[in-house]
């Protein structure tokens, strides 16, 4: 076996040698199987490193394109109109996800499964609307639109209703801002819906419901709606929206990797005393 140092072989694999040196190394490799195998192993390691760094770059490009999408005209609209629009978005998302089946089989409060054309409803929209209606509960209206600006209050309300801490992620870095959250109902059990919007496109929704399941991120789709499901810490999650598969998986990964939130306490209402106590700390 010919003695060639790793230094020389790595320089050869990296294309750092002069032409004359390259030819000399190739000549040796033609005659030495052991060295040729070593070069193959170095090339293999080199290729896998390149692929790993490419994978990171692909993720960065997705992030940058999502974050830098131009803001459309009309995003700054009066709050009254915004409330109507947001309510519409919530209902639209509920309908879309009702159609998608939420990853959980939809059922009436009594437990019977809803068939799309069941219960004497003739039109598709009526059956879909009935599905969405089955998801609404009194609590859906108790988390009011007026409270949505207080992120901590909404998080507290949701955790209180679900009776466990749930992830309430900030997706600004992914280009989505929190719009509103509400409580739906599935088989008598609270189903949390947290809605986000990007500068363009449809809503992104994170659903959370008490329950166990696989902790693996599982992709799925219904029509144009992409979904990812998983469960952790006794809460079952569904992330859904009309977004790119890779972006949705990256957001789901981010949410899953996010540490569990601390136990939330009720935010104190503003009073002069509370304010003075906070200030004196």
């Amino acid at each position: 076996m010919t003695e060639l140092s790793d230094e020389l072989l790595v320089a050869y694999v990296d294309g750092q040698l002069a032409r004359k040196q390259t030819r000399a190394v190739e000549k040796v490799l033609d005659q030495d199987d052991v060295l040729a195998a070593r070069v193959d192993a170095l090339k293999h390691a080199h290729a896998r490193l390149e692929a790993a760094f490419e994978a990171i770059l692909a993720g960065e490009e997705v992030d940058v394109s999502a974050a830098s999408a131009p803001v459309e005209d009309g995003i700054f609209i009066p709050w009254r109109i915004a409330k109507m629009a947001l309510a519409g978005i919530g209902i639209a998302a509920a309908l879309a996800l009702a159609i998608a089946g939420y990853g959980w089989p939809l059922s009436l409060p009594g437990g019977s499964q809803i068939a799309p054309h069941a219960a004497g409803l003739s039109g598709d929209w009526q059956a879909d609307a009935a599905r969405a209606q089955a998801l609404l509960s009194r609590q859906s209206l108790e988390v009011g639109l007026e409270s949505q600006a207080n992120y901590d209050l909404v998080a507290f309300q949701l955790a209180h209703i679900l009776e466990t801490n749930l992830k309430f992620p900030n997706l600004q870095a992914q280009g989505f801002h929190f719009v509103r959250a509400q409580v739906l109902r599935y088989d008598g059990v609270p189903l949390i819906q947290i809605l986000y919007l990007a500068a363009r496109g449809g809503p992104l929704a994170l659903y959370a419901k008490k329950g166990e399941g696989s902790d693996t991120l599982t992709p799925g789709r219904y029509g144009t709606i992409r979904t990812v499901t998983w469960a952790e810490d006794g809460v079952s999650y569904l992330l859904a929206g009309e977004v790119d598969d890779a972006l949705l998986m990256r957001i789901a990964t981010r949410v899953k990797l996010e540490p569990a939130p601390p136990l939330r306490s009720a935010p104190k209402p503003y009073t002069p005393v509370n304010d003075a106590l906070d200030t004196s700390r």
């Binding site: 003695e3 060639l4 790793d6 230094e7 790595v10 070593r38 192993a41 170095l42 080199h46 896998r48």
Partner: peptide, 27 residues
Amino acid sequence: AARLVRITAGLSDQLSDRAPAQAAATV
């Protein structure tokens, strides 16, 4: 260059389950 030799050779050894090269001989 020296870092690349050490790291790439190390990774290559790990991926191919090859015993690390003897420092006195080649590194």
